[in-house]
């Protein structure tokens, strides 16, 4: 079936943007928690360069990044 890299490209780009957005937010407990989550996802995705993920892991990571983006959006609203 599909090559992994298309979704990995999308996930990597989105994660990099999310990390950048979080870095621009003033630090508080919620921001710090999301930064840790984003860093943890980035680490996992980096490891996939040497050890390709299963289909379930790819699907789960995409969902997790989409959910992380929702949390970052919500945090952006509360800090407005």
């Amino acid at each position: 079936m599909p090559p992994a890299s298309i979704r990995l490209d999308i996930v990597r780009t989105a994660l990099a943007d999310i990390v950048e957005r979080l870095a621009e937010m003033p630090a508080n407990a919620d921001v710090r928690e999301l930064r840790m989550q984003a860093a943890s996802f980035s680490r996992v995705v980096r490891e996939w360069d040497s050890r390709p993920p299963s289909e379930e892991q790819r699907a789960e990571m995409t969902k997790s990044v989409i959910d992380l983006n929702v949390k970052v959006m919500a945090l952006g609203r509360t800090t407005q």
């Binding site: 298309i6 780009t13 995409t62 969902k63």
Partner: peptide, 13 residues
């Protein structure tokens, strides 16, 4: 369904 959603997400992103 996961792949199509991810690609749609990538396009919007």
């Amino acid at each position: 369904r996961h792949i199509v959603t991810a690609i749609a997400f990538g396009e919007i992103w």
